[in-house]
Amino acid sequence: MKVIWIWLESKWDNINEPKNLIYLKLLCLLQGSFYFLGLLRMNEIITFLENNLLFCPSKEFIGIECLGCGLQRSFILLIKGEFLNSIIMYPALIPMLIMIGYLVSHIYFDFKNGASILKYFYFLNIILIVANYFIKQLSYI
């Protein structure tokens, strides 16, 4: 990651080529990463994940769902590409992934208002998790 960033910065310093070309190169890099994802055998990964779900102890022994129930199922749906179903299953998954990615990039690059943005993401996640939990519990009654 850092190597790529240093390479990009060196590119930015001596700009002999127009900006559009750099954006094109970035797009090619993105597409190459998607191609790499295609090389991974996603079907096998998905079936492996579906067969090896971690069980929830509170659902297993007590009988009530916990705050994180649905996270793995929704992640599998996200990998499959069913965004809407994964949002319905567990709406806090995508903001959570964004938050973790932002946290890692904030530690690397030290954004200016990174801490406060992370705080707001955190509150958003908590509101989504708790609201989703209570709505789910009400739907069982």
Partner: peptide, 11 residues
């Protein structure tokens, strides 16, 4: 602090 919310689920 952030991990504490992500893993607050198992009891």
């Amino acid at each position: 602090g952030i991990v504490s919310i992500v893993t607050c689920f198992c009891y």
